[in-house]
Each structure stands twice: as C-alpha cells, then as structure tokens.
Computed example of a mutant assay.
Amino acid sequence: MNNLTPYIIVSAILFAIGFAVIVTKKNLILMLMGVELMLNAVNINFVAFSKFDKIPEQGQIFALFIMLVAASEVAVGLAIILKIKKYYENINPEKLTELKN
C-alpha cells in the first residue's frame, strides 16, 4: 500500500482523543494518559512517513526517541502526581490553586 491517508487518519483520531482527554478530564493521571495518546499519534506519523523516505530508518529512530521521552515523562509525571496527592490529598487540577512551601 503506497497511501499515507489511513495512517494519517488514525493518527489524527488518536491525537484528537488525547487532546480531548487533556482538555476535559479533571484528573492528573488521565491527563497524563492523554499526553501519551498524543505522543503515540506522532509516532504513527513518523513511522508512516519513514516508509516513503530515502532513509527509512530515520523515522523509526525518531519514534524510538519519542518512546524513550514518553517513558521518562511518565516516570517523572507519576512521581510528581504522587507527591501532589500526598501533600494536597487531591489530584484534581482545578482544586490545586495555590503553591505552598
């Protein structure tokens, strides 16, 4: 198949779902999952476009880097969320309105 359209459509749908989750959810963990969906949508684009590149491994290498960044982001994000939960006893971003020392 030499058509990028299905890949771009799936990627756009995943990105839109991730964005909708970030905008509508009231939970930091679900917002983090929305960011992960958006990063996976970008990965699909990189791999799909690398299929038509002169150096096909280039897009796949970028996708691997994005997965490494996503894994690091999840580890750091969950650590921060757990600290916020322990300190404020809440992970609703609308109720976290002030910073304390």
Rank of each mutant, 00 (worst) to 15 (best):
M1T: 07
M1V: 09
N2E: 08
N2M: 09
N3R: 11
N3K: 06
L4N: 04
L4A: 08
L4Q: 05
P6I: 11
Y7T: 02
I8Q: 07
I9H: 03
I9Y: 08
S11T: 02
A12R: 00
A12H: 01
A12P: 00
I13M: 11
L14M: 15
A16I: 13
A16Y: 03
I17M: 10
G18F: 05
G18Q: 08
A20Q: 04
V21W: 03
V21A: 12
I22H: 02
V23S: 10
V23Y: 09
T24A: 11
T24Y: 06
T24W: 04
K26F: 09
N27A: 05
N27L: 03
I29E: 04
L30G: 01
M31N: 09
M31T: 09
L32I: 06
L32F: 01
M33V: 13
M33K: 03
G34T: 07
V35P: 00
V35G: 05
V35W: 00
V35T: 12
E36W: 03
E36T: 10
L37D: 03
L37V: 06
L37G: 09
M38K: 02
L39H: 01
N40T: 12
N40D: 10
V42P: 00
N43D: 01
N43I: 10
I44P: 01
V47C: 04
V47W: 01
V47E: 00
A48I: 03
A48E: 03
F49P: 00
K51W: 08
K51R: 05
K51C: 07
K51Q: 08
K51H: 12
F52L: 10
D53C: 08
D53V: 01
K54V: 12
I55Q: 13
I55S: 07
I55G: 00
E57T: 06
Q58F: 15
I61K: 09
A63L: 03
A63G: 04
L64W: 13
L64A: 14
L64V: 14
L68F: 13
L68Y: 07
V69R: 00
V69P: 00
V69A: 14
A70G: 14
A70M: 14
A71G: 15
S72N: 09
S72A: 15
E73F: 15
E73H: 12
V74Y: 06
V74R: 12
V74Q: 03
V74L: 15
V74W: 07
A75R: 05
V76Q: 09
V76P: 06
V76M: 15
L78V: 15
L78Y: 13
L78K: 07
L78M: 15
L78R: 07
A79D: 05
I81K: 12
K83S: 14
I84P: 01
K85H: 14
K85W: 13
K86M: 13
Y87L: 12
Y87P: 00
Y87E: 15
Y88D: 04
E89Q: 14
N90F: 04
N90V: 02
I91K: 02
I91M: 05
E94V: 04
E94I: 06
E94L: 12
E94M: 11
K95H: 08
L96C: 11
L96K: 08
T97P: 00
T97Y: 10
L99I: 11
L99W: 07
K100A: 07
N101M: 10
